[in-house]
């Protein structure tokens, strides 16, 4: 049963100056699926992820060609407001990056900058987001303590809660567990399973077991090119290409 397409990239190229970091990527992301992007470091998977909420706009001398559609609308079209795109496409980075503010303020931040002023509404949103990120129980008694006092795993779940509070449609995760211990990693993975009921999730990981555990679809990147994409089960058991097989079996680099 095919679900509607949430995001589509058509012949996407990305350049840092003269260096072509991504070459002709065409890829489709179905709604309420988890797609994993795998590949060796430097293969362009993170660059690709950062194209999807226009985070690469911040890099000087960078340039993108091709189109990237969100619900059929090109997010790089000149009339599109980048700020709106970023609140529709949330992002969680590799290293937990809470602001040096309280736990509450961290989560309220996205609401406040998007113009929510009603205090009770903010408070209930904060609670809901923390519950969804499976963090509420651990922090409900110290919402006004600094977020920097949380453990690494808690901080990462806080960052997820912070992203969820804005109610994005797509959630991008750039190696969200690489700085965490196995137990924290397991919690985040369980969380991803629950979140995909509501969101379209795209996750970059270098950990193939993780990709196999959490994703429905896996795309393999190498040297800025999309090599192979398939259902995760299929890709890991019957890869079509030799390159993919070499990578997933560890005979690579």
């Amino acid at each position: 049963m095919e679900r509607p397409l949430k995001m589509v990239s058509n012949h996407l190229h990305f350049y840092y100056g003269d260096f072509e970091a991504l070459h002709d990527i065409s890829l489709e992301f179905s709604e309420n699926k988890v797609t994993a992007l795998i590949g060796p470091s430097g293969c362009g998977k993170s660059t690709y992820l950062r194209c999807m909420n226009r985070m690469n706009d911040l890099i000087a001398y960078s340039r993108m060609e091709g189109e990237l559609l969100l619900d059929g609308e090109d997010i790089y079209a000149p009339s599109v407001d980048v700020v709106t795109i970023r609140s529709r496409v949330g992002m969680v980075l590799q290293k937990p990056n809470p602001f040096p503010k309280s736990i509450f303020e961290n989560i309220a931040y996205g609401l406040k900058v998007n113009g929510v002023k009603d205090k009770s509404k903010i408070a209930s949103k904060v609670e809901k987001s923390l519950i969804r990120a499976a963090l509420w129980g651990e922090v409900k008694d110290r919402l006004h303590d600094s977020a920097l006092g949380l453990s690494g795993g808690q901080q990462q779940r806080l960052c997820i809660a912070r992203a969820l509070a804005v109610e994005p449609e797509v959630l991008l995760m750039d190696e969200p567990c690489s700085a965490l211990d196995p137990i924290a990693t397991q919690k985040i993975e369980e969380l991803i399973h629950q979140l995909k009921i509501t969101y379209t999730i795209i996750i970059v990981t270098h950990n193939m077991q993780q990709a196999a555990r959490v994703s429905d679809i896996t795309a393999f990147f190498y040297m800025g090119k999309l090599i192979e994409v398939n259902y995760t089960n299929t890709l890991f058991t019957r890869p079509k290409l030799k390159q993919t097989e070499d990578y997933i079996t560890g005979r690579f680099g």
Partner: peptide, 8 residues
């Protein structure tokens, strides 16, 4: 709305 934000 989008455009006013960009202009700002």
């Amino acid at each position: 709305m989008a455009n006013t934000r960009q202009i700002k």
